[in-house]
Design a protein around this nucleic acid. Structure first.
Lengths: 223, 223, 223, 223
DNA sequence: AATGAATGAGAGTTCATTCAT
DNA sequence: TATGAATGAACTCTCATTCAT
């Protein structure tokens, strides 16, 4: 059953986190809402294609079809926009991956499903990968928020699965957190290599090999 | 025994790759050699502290104790310097990790030793981690060169270990490459989390948990 | 009568040529139009006094009374401004000379009037002479455009005058073009010597001697 | 007979003029002489191809095959080199043209021969044209020296020819000087148009048309 | 005489942000 | 709210010239 997906409950606050970083500038009219959204979408394209530093506000407003000055009606600065965007994309990844994880029959299957969904998502949205990862150098807090949050969810899943007896329980302190970061790193790098770099990798094959690695390691059960 | 360290033979071309990117500007006198080295060291500090875009040429020359114009005696541009630096650091990481890997008694121990050496190195040289990773956004070719090269070496090690019967041989195409990228991602993220982010993590503990994960997976041998 | 002034009809495309070189940056407000014009005028003074290379953007914006950055709101580069300026001045010369030429009773009188108007104009606007001629080294295409256009107009005049029987028709191919370039060179050098170099030359006397040369050559009709 | 070529005697002082501008730095060894000559030749090529401002000392020394620092052993500055070069080329033009002028049977033939020789020379040495003309903007004194000197020689020729009764004598003051500048301008522009711009113009045809213009004007003797 | 490194003033250009309409 | 012009600090890069060897 899928009740262990409840782990995601620990990382709610999508809008809350955003609120922390972005005090006001909430659209009050429909027109405003449209302009703000257009800027966000244009920024995703511009940042994805050119990176944060080579992207320019004027490039973003041009893509969005609004005047340069209008940008500051909706965002305080280039950094603030970036921050909002990372929160937005972080949320998107989570939303796409969560249902597959939740639907998995057990702990191992959940990690497998998570990787699979992630690889597919990355391939379809390469710019998201780029933006979130560039946050490490542009706005470390955003970067940290995203990966710490993701790790937390994995920790919750592993803990629950161990409780259910599906995984061996490693008694060492922080063992589960280490495992979570290992899994996350594995996922991210496989996403980079097979989702972003190559256009036509066999994502199922990749998922199978990785899931096998997680299940029994490199040595185990040589059958 | 440690003869499987020969795997490192797959990563030749260090200087060749550098030659491709930097055609000339070789120092012809001892004084020139010193100046060039001073700039490289100053750049490592400046890029490490401030990141590529916030770093400035004048900051680098000031640290190096040379005039602004002297920079261009040795490097064609800020990007060219960055490229040279990444090659330099990539080489440094490899050189620090390789001996530990080579000295390991078997395949699993080699990966364990690799992670351990990497974590220690990252903690002592946080700026190197930062520089190599920022290359993804500043000079993707350098970034790729570094990680593709590293993955190749892991592939060679795993293949050799499987041949020696120390690891199960996964017959699926590209299975070893997928495993290599998984291991590399795991290492990098653990380096970020426990080497860069926290000042006082128990690196041995981290290494043990990760090595265990590699050996028998999350489920295996629940004893 | 003056109907042969229609020759000037051959030199349309003034704005067209400008459009080719300057795609956008058209002012959309009155304020913009004023700023752009101020920059053009300041540039004429600065380039005229110091020459293209010794002139500086900051010198130009200072003269124009606008901020340095505003320059780039209206021009893409120093070269682009120069190009626009040459087109502007080329047009000015043409506009000052054309009416006199048009008003002349016959072909020879037209060339005489052209030279006379040109000499006067050059004396009053030495900087224009300087700017157009420096184009040979700064933006050869502009230089060519100006002199090729001027030559074309002279060709048209000579051809029309010959048709009217006022001048002998030289049957050799390209004869009229050669004559046009000869006349133009004569005019330009007399402009340099007596319009730019000396402050108080007798321009009418110069015109008379030159007109005489054109009418009957160095030898002809020794009366 | 050709005795009127003696006019050139008025403008000797080739080395004298050079001496005025360039105080010392005379080579005292054979090696020095070779180096200085190599720099002068390299400069002709570099200035001719790129123009004064885009040319660089390092480009010149590279072409000459000497070290950057050696430049200042032989020339005080970039301007000083340019000055020396213009004097050099001015002299070369004169030397190539003079014999043809001297050999001409009469005054009109002399001007014809002068133009003819000039056109041929310009076609073969486009860079010389460029360098001398750029002097107007780089070192006006050199430019003036060259053209004033050339005009003086033409004046002398015309005066002598008039004295011999080959040309009509224009009694107006400065008439001969005006004619000389007109002829010079004509020559220079025909050189630009047919010697520099077009690769394959019929130089003899051009010379014929121009000579005819000088002999009888645009109107004269319509037979 | 020659070499190659060092110097630093100075230039053009970019662009996030502000402002008047 | 939206617009487009204005601002100016900051930056990278060039290159004539000087200097130590």
């Amino acid at each position: 059953m899928a009740q262990h997906g409840g782990a995601d409950a620990t990382s709610v606050a999508g809008p809350a986190a955003e609120a922390t970083a972005m005090p006001a500038k909430e659209p009050r009219t429909e027109r405003g809402r449209r302009t703000r959204r257009a800027l966000l979408d244009a920024a995703a394209a511009e940042f994805g294609e050119r990176g944060f530093h080579d992207a320019s506000i004027s490039g973003i407003t041009a893509r969005a079809g609004v005047a340069l000055g209008s940008f500051y009606t909706w965002f305080d600065s280039k950094e603030a926009l970036f921050r909002a965007l990372v929160a937005d994309m972080s949320e998107q990844v989570r939303e796409r991956v969560a249902p597959h994880v939740r639907a998995a029959p057990d702990g191992l299957a959940a990690e497998r499903a998570g990787l699979s969904a992630f690889l597919t998502f990355v391939r379809d949205h390469k710019e998201i990968y780029r933006i979130i990862d560039e946050a490490e150098f542009v706005d470390p807090a955003s970067f940290r928020r995203h990966y710490a949050g993701t790790a937390e969810r994995i920790v919750a899943r592993l803990t629950a699965a161990a409780t259910r007896g599906e995984l061996r329980a490693d008694p060492r302190p922080d063992a589960v957190e280490v495992q979570a970061w290992a899994i996350m790193g594995m996922n991210v790098f496989l996403g980079l290599r097979y989702g972003v770099w190559s256009e036509d990798a066999d994502l199922d094959g990749v998922t199978n090999v990785a899931a096998d690695l997680l299940r029994r390691g490199l040595a185990g059960d040589r059958d």
